[in-house]
Structure formats: C-alpha cells, structure tokens
Amino acid sequence: MARVDSAETGQDDADGRDTGSGTWRAAVRRAVRAASRPGPWKRGPVLAALALLLGLFMLLHAEIPNRIGNLGSLAETFLPWFGLFVPVLLAGALWRRSASATVALLVPVLVWLNLFGGLLGDKSRPGGGFVVASHNVGAGNPDPVRTARDLAASGANVLALEELPQEATATYEKELARAYPHHTVQGTVGLWSKLPLSDTRPVDIQTDAGPLGAAKSAEAKMPGNRALRTTVATDHGPLAVYVAHLGSARVNPRAGFWTAHRDRNAKALGQAIATERSERVVLLGDLNGTMDDRAFDGITSRMRSAQEEAGDGFGFTWPAAFPMVRIDQILVRGVQPRAAWILPATGSDHLPVAAEITW
C-alpha cells in the first residue's frame, strides 16, 4: 500500500506527534513575534533619551550650578571630551537598529560642532613676525639648562616663564642671557625679551575675598608673587604684557573640583586687565583652567584666545605626557594673532605655547 504523508492528513507520525498542527502552531508563533517586535523607530528609547540629554548637557553647560563641588566648572574644563560619548551611543544605536536613537544623536553632534567645530581646522595666516611664548617650566624640572636652551631656540621675541623655582632662576637667567638681553623676574614668574622693558611691576592677584566672606588666611595665600606686568618697546609702539600663574585646581573627593584660590586669582587678574590703559595687551601664563570655564569670564570678556583665533586644533598643554586640557594660555587685546602652536616638550609637565601676532 502507498504511504500516506502524516503532514497532509494531520495524523500523528510514528513518534506520536501531530506534525501538521505543530507546523501551523510554529508559524503562528513566528507571526505573533514578528508582529509584536517594535519597529526601528520604537527601538532604543533609552539610547535616544541619552543622546538628547548629552546634547542638552553640552548646550546648557553654563546653567550647571557651581554650588555643589564646582560641577559647572568641572564640566566646562573637560567639555570637548564629552563628544566621545557620541560614537559610543552610535554603536549602541546601530546594534539595536534604532532609527530614533540614530536621529537623536544629531542633537549632540550639532551642539558639539557649534561649540568646538571652529577649532578643528588650521586657522593660521601668513604675516606677523612678532612671536610671544609662554611655559610653565615646572618646579621639579630635572634639566632646566636644556629647557632654557630649547626655549631660546624657539626664536620668540618675548618669553614668559612660570613656576620658577628659586634655586633654578639663576640657571634660566644665564642660559637665556644671550638670546634675551632684557628680562625681569617677579617672584615665581619672569619675562625675557629681545626688546627693552619698562614700567615693570608685580601684580597682586591674591585677594581677600573668599567663600562666605572669610578673610585671607596663611593657607589661602599663594607662595611668592605670581603675576607681573611690563611694557615691551616694539617697532609698532608699546605692548603691555602680563605674565601670570594662577592657583592650582584640584579634584578632591570631599570638596569636588577645588578651585577657590585660582578663581580668586582670576578675578583679581581680570580687574587688573580691566584697568589697563594700554590699547595693546598680551596675557601669557599658566591659568590652570580652560577658557570655557566661567571662572575666567572677567578675562575672556576683555581678551581673545590666540589659539581659538589662529591655532590648529585644541592645543592641549597638560599633562605633557598625554595632554587633555589647555591650561596654558596666550590671550590678546588690540593686536591680531596670525598663528598659534605648541612647542616641543621639555622636562616640565606642561607643554610650551607660542603665538605670532601683528598690529
């Protein structure tokens, strides 16, 4: 007799299974699962929400309060690095095949480009010829002789040094004397120049103002003078030059982003620059902060960053082994930066910075 296919009759096979009805049940289950599976626009709602929050965070960074651990300043210090979350979220969106999360990522991308896109290209222009440079040489620098010679070889017309240790100051003066016949040292900061200097004086950036109106204490007072002002006699007229080394910023588990001394220094320096009568001003120094940080509003409202206007990239300077932030600055007023760049590493934990300016 001919064999009758159990799938056609719906009868049980030799193992007692109803193969016909089983096939139909499997097909129904697959259809139900396919119908209940969310579409690409409904997948990844958490990823989409995170993308939108990232964009709002960068867009509204100025609204983050500093009342708790200086969170606002901490976020602004490392603000460019928040862009690294975009490829992470994009990888998650592609893995989830989420159209909504992919589209939502346009928000942080556009915000980041609006904030930092202008820093990505080379903005240097020909012309200028007057070079200024600045370097935190580091109190623990193991080879100040090599550092001084490397800086002299840069060809800068004006060279500012910060964090000058007393025991190494004579070394810098000796090694830089041939290239820079004019110089001044005020406390732990100094300026070396190929052109004559005049009207040189220390700038007091140590203020009495503190949290809760506390008076300045021995702990709050910075060791030695940390800022100076002088006039460089250029072929185009007098150029006021400020050199400053502001207080350090520290991340403390209990205090958060601790910047009390630095912020007071920045406020006092901003007030000094505000009263400066010279039309042409250059500020060189280790400000221990980025120009995105609101603590420097009193300075950035009156001066422009040479790196932002004429540099190539972000120009990170610290730490020298793996630079993550730009805390060494060249700011100008009344002159035009034509180029800005980073000089080769020395024995310091900071990288030197330089800029070419014109009138």
Rank of each mutant, 00 (worst) to 15 (best):
S98R: 06
L56E: 03
R25H: 11
I68P: 00
P87F: 12
A355T: 09
A51L: 08
T171A: 06
R43F: 09
R67D: 11
F296C: 02
A7N: 13
G44W: 04
W112H: 11
A48Y: 01
D292Q: 14
V232T: 08
A249I: 14
R333A: 01
T346A: 01
W81A: 09
L351K: 02
A152K: 01
H135W: 01
R125P: 00
L89S: 07
R277V: 14
L151M: 08
L191Y: 06
L287H: 04
P253C: 12
I330M: 05
Q166N: 15
D5C: 11
A215W: 08
T23F: 07
G270N: 01
R304S: 13
T317V: 04
D263C: 06
S124E: 03
E175G: 00
A339K: 09
R294Q: 11
T77F: 07
F85P: 01
V203Y: 02
S124Y: 06
H261K: 14
V111C: 07
R25Y: 10
E308N: 12
D143M: 04
A266K: 11
V189R: 02
V158R: 04
G270S: 00
G10H: 06
A168K: 12
G270H: 01
Q186H: 11
W318T: 06
D199T: 14
A255C: 00
T230V: 10
V86Y: 03
V107T: 10
E162T: 15
T77I: 08
N157L: 05
E76P: 00
